[in-house]
Design a protein around this nucleic acid. Sequence first.
DNA 1: CCCTGATTCGC
DNA 2: GCGAATCAGG
Length: 171
Amino acid sequence: MMDAGPGWTNERVELLKRLWSDGHSASQIAAEIGGVSRNAVIGKVHRLGLAGRVTKPNGAQAASGRRPRAEAESPGASVAPTVLAPAPPALALIQPTSVPSAVALPESSRVTIMELRDFMCRWPMGDPSTPDFRFCGDRAITGLPYCTHHSRIAYQPAAERKRDRKVVGFR
DNA sequence: CCCTGATTCGC
DNA sequence: GCGAATCAGG
């Protein structure tokens, strides 16, 4: 008599609530509960009214939802051209004068410009005029030219002159 | 390429 | 009510 499909029993819902309020992500909760997908968790969370963990002050909500089953996209139409980074690190001028490569980056996936892919971090490393000039090449944040590490450096908020040395944006 | 939550809609 | 598909953003 195995239950074919354990729906959202009271215990599961309570576990969901506990994990959600405990700060676990939807995918983590889904993996913890088992048998449910991340979407299922999110959907249930919203249905329970628990959503609203991250509320945007602006009226700009999130996605507009899923498409109404229509896919008449213009195949020939080209989208907007690729936009470059708003504030590149001025090439190698901001070079890591004291980069403990032997400690910090044991094996950074540095790549040449030829090996640089779209999803790779474009953070310059080394002197562009030398043959050993490479880019970080690490996995870049989607939509951004840099990886998580270098994004923090490139997009540092201009309001942190001295004190407050905490890392930006993190739950 | 990874991830996060939000939303819609067919079931 | 449920959750996959999709979207938007990091």
